[in-house]
Design a binder for these strands. Structure first.
Lengths: 234, 234
DNA sequence: ACCACTTTGATTGTTGAACAATACTTCAAT
DNA sequence: ATTGAAGTATTGTTCAACAATCAAAGTGGT
């Protein structure tokens, strides 16, 4: 054991993994989770005093967390009135799908340059969804579908794109909470996802993009119909 | 004038135009401007106490502003050490161009669906740049080039994409400050911008996209070379 | 000169209280 | 029903305090 002495150099880089985080960030993470899971309904008002008491943090720290989530469009800040859980409307759905068409279709079309692992990650998401279907786990199917699209964005291999996708998909979760989408919503898309993945695995990225575009058209139409249904009831 | 009574319904929506803004947002705007203009050099540390004194705002308010700009990647927040003006490196340049290829090329390829005004805005940016060249106004050429690419992103017609482009281009300004780019950097691209615009005006969006892709390749290469030059001097 | 260790000083992280400014509610008056 | 005028609750912002952490200067032994 006289040792080469440089075993320490072979340790994996930890990057920012063990970065201590501020209270504001932890609070933001918590709130984000609650919003995505629907614990905090869209449109709900977040009282600084009550949430501060609940989480045992000061108002100042809480406000920092609010700024973070406001920038992610999960909260809307109305001056002198407070912060509310965002409540996306039909226009937001249209916009979200414009973004998705731009980013995801671009990612797929340039998929030929992506490393094999990136494509494999998409396949993993497909299988994750299929396993969830076998269990009858509708929640799991939805999660797997999100993972599928996050993996599609991952084809670009860009941290910034990854971050954008995370945000966009989080907003999309909010859309579902607004219109109380049926839990089976994603089920029909499982087979389509597999088809898209198979095309990519075979190197037919352009065809895959066309398939994906078709999915966007149908899904957007379906969501918008649900929204106009809601509008009529107001 | 017994009146129909519902003229008020015909009033244009004011949207958020007369939204009052918080101090934190105004401070963030100020700092953002200083960062983009290079008044605050990349890597510079922003002391809470000194900046707070300078702007006459409390530390708490200042920290809210810092959170905003941190989320825009213009500031980096190191726990217990402070906030610094972001200092993009070569990896950031690569990533920024990945994003630009995804977003801008996607925008151009789908340009056929964009309204004529959106295309016209691109032409306006081209002419703005050419006028700046006639004046020998290098600063103006750079600004016009930014406007050009912002207008390209505008083809999508999505507020979220517009916001992304604003952020990406702001980061790109930081890249220029890091490597002290020559003021004539953008000049050679003026003619290429016009060519790309003419193609789009003629409806040849796919060809325009190919041209734009060529621009990205050259510009990225040029920036990366400048960076490796810097690295050698360290 | 060089290494480990402590001490000191400065800065950030977070809290709690305070006050002004604004919004919401209630209720009276027309 | 609409308007106006309190009164109350909430947000916007500041300030002061203290703990936690980092950076730098010293300290001593070799």
């Amino acid at each position: 054991m006289t040792a080469t002495g440089d075993w320490i150099d072979n340790l994996p880089d930890v990057g920012g993994e063990l970065e201590r985080s501020s209270t504001a960030e932890r609070v933001a993470d918590l709130l984000r989770g609650h919003i995505i899971d629907g614990v905090l309904a869209p449109g709900a008002r977040l009282s600084e005093e009550r949430i501060g008491k609940k989480f045992r943090v000061s108002r100042n720290t809480l406000r920092e967390a609010f700024r973070l989530l406001g920038h992610e469009r999960l909260l809307v800040h109305e001056f002198n009135r407070g912060v509310f859980v965002a409540k996306p409307d039909a226009a937001d759905v249209v916009d979200l799908f414009r973004v998705r068409r731009t980013v995801e279709l671009g990612a797929v079309r340039a998929g030929g340059d992506a490393p094999p692992e990136a494509v494999a990650a998409i396949g993993a998401a497909v299988e994750q969804g299929e396993r969830a279907r076998e269990r009858g786990d509708w929640e799991g199917i939805g999660t797997a579908n999100m993972a599928f699209h996050r993996a599609v964005g991952g084809l670009v291999g860009s941290p910034r794109i990854d971050e954008m996708m995370r945000q966009i998909l989080a907003e999309l979760r909010l859309v579902f909470h607004v219109m109380a989408a049926p839990r089976e919503f994603y089920e029909p898309y499982l087979d389509r996802n597999r088809a898209i993945y198979e095309l990519m695995a075979a190197g037919a990225f352009d065809t895959a993009a066309e398939e994906l575009a078709g999915y966007f058209d149908i899904a957007e139409r379906q969501l918008l119909d649900a929204f106009t249904g809601l509008a009529r009831r107001d």
